[in-house]
Computed example of a mutant assay.
Amino acid sequence: MRNRRHVLHLITTGRQELEEVEALLAKVPEGSLDALHIREKHRGAKEIVHWYERLHSLLPWAPIYINDRLDAAAAVGSPGVQLGYTSLGPAAARKLMGERTRIGVSVHSALEAVKAAEEGADYVLFGHVYLTGSKEGLAPRGTEALAEVTNASPLPVIAIGGITPDNVREVLAAGCAGVAVLSGFFGQKDPVGQLLRYQEELGRRASTPRRLSQ
């Protein structure tokens, strides 16, 4: 029987250079996160490959996903990819990446989550749940909308957007499989301490995810 647990994904911000990201991640305890996403929209494929190689060497135990850039993901054999609104769909991505690659899709509604499942995604990322600096001027969708998505989705739902250790349990109560954070880690004075706080809240298992994830 698979372990029912909530997951934690870290996502790079696109506002830091590789050396700064490496310095922050160098102190991360082994096993303290479930996936690291390289989300650097302004960088080309060659640079993304360089990031992957450096971060994989630094964190050989952590699955490293590449957001959007399927060319770079295929070049390095990334174990996972995250698709956005302008990316290729899950079916096309599967043809390029193969059956073993975990494919995530960013969604904003229950309908989009169901469609992602029909097209062969493995999980969905829903947000933004709370106010966040990365989505200035856009109203948060809130935990009620998150619950609608988790109820409708046949896939694990990972929540994103303004999630802090203080509101993790509220998010989990909506039935999601875990959380993804950017500035909640990369923008902190004590990122490792913050990471451990997330893990503590996720480990309380105040609720059971409606779908299992990895």
Score class of each variant (00 low, 15 high):
A74S: 13
P191W: 01
L70E: 04
E200W: 07
A73Y: 05
L146S: 10
R210K: 14
G31H: 02
A113L: 01
T208P: 07
A62C: 15
A139S: 15
G133C: 01
S78F: 01
E19T: 14
L36E: 00
T143P: 08
V81F: 03
L155T: 04
H56N: 14
Y65R: 13
E40L: 03
G187C: 02
A180Y: 11
I48V: 14
L36G: 08
F185H: 12
S87R: 01
K46M: 12
A117P: 04
E17W: 09
V149L: 09
K115T: 14
L55N: 00
L138K: 15
K46Y: 11
E22D: 08
D190W: 07
M1V: 14
L36Q: 03
R2T: 10
R204A: 14
S78G: 00
E119R: 15
L195Q: 02
A180I: 00
P140M: 06
R205V: 13
V171Y: 13
Q199K: 15
G89R: 03
S213K: 08
Y123L: 04
M1D: 12
S87E: 05
A116K: 08
G187Y: 10
G84M: 08
V149M: 10
L172G: 05
Y198S: 10
P29I: 07
L70R: 08
I38E: 01
G193D: 03
R204C: 04
I103N: 11
G178E: 02
P29D: 07
L138S: 13
G80C: 03
I38H: 03
R141T: 03
E148H: 02
Y198Q: 06
A45I: 00
G77P: 02
P191E: 01
S183K: 13
R4D: 08
